[in-house]
């Protein structure tokens, strides 16, 4: 991480002598206004975009969620919390929230476990290790659309190679995308593969930040590799793990592309996750108000996750 020596960010003006105070204060105020204006000029381009495309739309999503709309998205009748009631009482929509949670549970632990294994391997000091580090992180460069297409082939019931390997190893063919029992797992496996690169890279960077002396003194105390892993590596990685749990949960809740390409929410709504359901509600059904209410629920889930993470892990960002 790029980090210099800590520098004072606020300049504290020295206390003025009593005589100069009258004139000095005014000068300070003018200077404050001047520097504020200067700063605003530098922030203006970013702020203009954020206000137009982030903050106002966020407020409008809240506002939309309390209306019925016409098919063009124009609010017509105020319904208060009606859309939320509708959302939680419609089985299809409650189902998509439930499936999303299930999806997160199927995706996040698997991603972290596999990434941990890859990171431990990539952290070995061996010749040519840098090649493996690039290989293990390569999925960062792969888009969700291309990954979905590749996995769609792998899952193909008659020509895909995944079932071929499973049968070769003595298993029975799995109806990946065609059964409501396995489709969510199939989407989840695609997502795990896609997220693996980022997770491995971040875990590896954290491992490389562990001070060497810790391992040396542990070796002197006679700890073996296994002990060192449990006693030093894992505890040291805990905050990174926590960070990744949140990042992966957010990514899993936002999963859209593999569903749109591979299953269109089916079979039997088993992969109709939250973001896909939002898309379907407003883009095809014209239910803007309902989709907005779903977006707000998603937003609140993500906000709670992020706040949780901020409070427990990221505090340093502010006070460094």
């Amino acid at each position: 991480m790029i980090q210099g020596p800590t520098q004072p960010t606020e300049s504290i003006s020295p206390p003025l002598p009593a005589i100069a105070r009258g004139r000095g204060l005014k000068g300070v105020q003018i200077r404050q206004i001047k520097s504020f204006t200067r700063a605003m000029l530098f922030l203006a381009p970013s702020l203009a975009i954020f206000i137009t495309f982030v903050f106002i739309p966020l407020v409008r999503t809240f506002w939309l969620s309390s209306y019925l709309t016409n098919p063009l998205g124009k609010p017509t009748v105020f319904t208060g919390l009606g859309q939320y009631q509708r959302m939680f009482s419609t089985p299809e929509l409650g189902n998509s929230l439930l499936r999303s949670v299930l999806f997160v549970l199927e995706t996040v632990p698997a991603t972290l476990l596999l990434a941990l294994i890859l990171a431990v391997l990539a952290n070995q000091r061996l010749k040519g290790i840098s090649i493996f580090r690039v290989v293990f992180s390569i999925t960062i460069a792969v888009s969700s659309a291309t990954a979905s297409l590749i996995f769609m082939y792998l899952y193909h019931p008659s020509i895909g190679s995944l079932n071929y390997f499973i049968e070769l190893l003595g298993g029975t063919a799995v109806p990946w995308l065609t059964s409501d029992k396995t489709a969510l797992t199939a989407i989840s496996m695609t997502t795990v593969w896609l997220q693996l690169g980022l997770n491995t890279v971040i875990l590896l960077a954290a491992m490389q930040g562990i001070p060497e002396e810790l391992y040396e003194s542990a070796m002197i105390d006679g700890a073996n590799g296994w002990n060192r892993f449990w006693g030093i590596t894992l505890p040291f990685l805990s905050s990174t793990f926590f960070f990744l749990v949140v990042v992966d949960m957010l990514a899993a809740f936002q999963t859209f592309t593999p569903i749109q390409i591979m299953t269109l929410g089916g079979p039997a709504d088993s992969t109709n996750l939250l973001v896909y359901s939002i898309y379907r509600q407003f883009y095809f059904n014209g239910n803007y108000g309902l989709a907005a209410a779903q977006s707000i629920v998603l937003f609140i889930i993500m906000l709670l996750l992020t706040i949780f993470q901020f409070v427990f892990v990221e505090r340093k960002v502010f006070y460094e």
Partner: peptide, 15 residues
């Protein structure tokens, strides 16, 4: 950074 795209996408699309 904490506001997901999905929470703003409908108004943005309309805009």
């Amino acid at each position: 950074m904490m506001i997901p795209w999905e929470a703003t996408i409908i108004p943005n699309y309309l805009l």
